[in-house]
Write a protein that binds this DNA or RNA. Structure first.
Lengths: 191, 191
DNA sequence: ATTTGCATGTAATCTGTTACATGATTCA
DNA sequence: TGAATCATGTAACAGATTACATGCAAAT
């Protein structure tokens, strides 16, 4: 008896790949580069996940591929989304799911237990975290500068832009939070 | 030959449990309730994870337990942290790790692909998300009101407070981001 | 000729989720 | 006496990470 597909799981990677292939045919390698590059700012995946998932999507008839030759003999598989895959993807894309549980962040757990540290240790921890988020924020702000003027609605560039703005706002807030935590732990500071 | 403990993994659950047991002896059931209750706002775990992890921590001599009887026969295991466990925990607590990759959020992936929707569909998606985050924000703000005045530095209450403030700031920003996205997608709106 | 990049995969392990499974105690 | 809560576990599966493994092509 064939196993029924389990419909209760998220399959986020599936939709990430279908979404990319819905825009353009690509090889697994190109998909890897995309997710390791600019996209990794908000969606990171490992190379080793890609090929098994593409294989699975092929078996499920969500994608197909044709083999192309680079140079003399090197084979690459150029993947395309199928009609079934596109339908699946569009269904996911419009879906309004209930909010998932807040993602776990180890640092927030450290903060939760931070009264078990000395004041100085806590300050070191907070300052270090702040420095790291400031660096990430500056990097994202550079991305925005490189982006140029605000794109037009209903374009791929606008989607990119919304995600980028979201990432920047998130980092800004994290920095403000950490600064606030430092204040709260320094009784000398003026509130 | 005995397997070496793998030191490259995070073991976040380990430290979450040790941190709790470092404050008070507890049963697995009580730990479950804690993480399902107030803490679930920023750190959610499933009941089924608890008992295997407690078993493992016992084998690793990070915790011990004594059996107590409720009623006539019902056994419960009251866990305590060991000295070794406390050392482990404190080492983790002061550790400044490099930032982990940004946690994956399906919704941001949907936004990234949202130019493949109609303007109306996109608006529905954004508005639905906004409503959900507004509800969560109100819930968190209620928690803050219940919290009372700002706690003193160096107390457990202050740690709680910092995490709560962080959660509120995060939700506020998410709401502002979603409102901004709605603006960006409505050419009629005044910027 | 050597390094870097293109290209595709597998194996082992870890973490987390869903679902199942059982039974005692307390309160209405 | 029946429902809610206390209390502890297991099994199967899903998802992600780390590490390994191989080999061609292009550029310096």
């Amino acid at each position: 008896m064939r196993k029924e597909p389990n419909s209760t799981t998220m399959r986020s990677l599936k939709y990430a790949l279908l979404g990319m292939l819905n825009q353009q045919d690509m090889t697994g390698y190109e998909l890897t580069k995309l997710f390791e590059g600019a996209l990794s700012e908000f969606w990171s995946i490992k190379q080793s996940q890609i090929y098994p998932e593409l294989k699975r999507l092929t078996e499920e008839n969500k994608v197909t591929y044709r083999v192309e030759i680079t140079g003399q003999v090197l084979e690459k598989k150029l993947y395309s989304i199928t009609e079934q895959g596109r339908q699946d993807f569009m269904e996911w894309l419009v879906r309004s799911a209930p909010l998932p549980p807040t993602p776990k962040e180890d640092f927030r757990l450290q903060v939760f237990f931070s009264h078990q540290l000395t004041s100085a240790q806590r300050q070191t921890l907070l300052k270090n975290q702040l420095a790291q988020h400031q660096a990430r924020l500056e990097h994202l702000q550079q991305n925005r500068r490189d982006f140029g003027p605000q794109p037009a609605p209903d374009t791929a560039a606008m989607s990119d832009y919304m995600v980028l703005v979201g990432a920047i706002m998130r980092e800004e807030t994290t920095c403000r939070w950490l600064e606030r935590c430092l204040e709260l732990n320094d009784p000398a500071a003026t509130p």
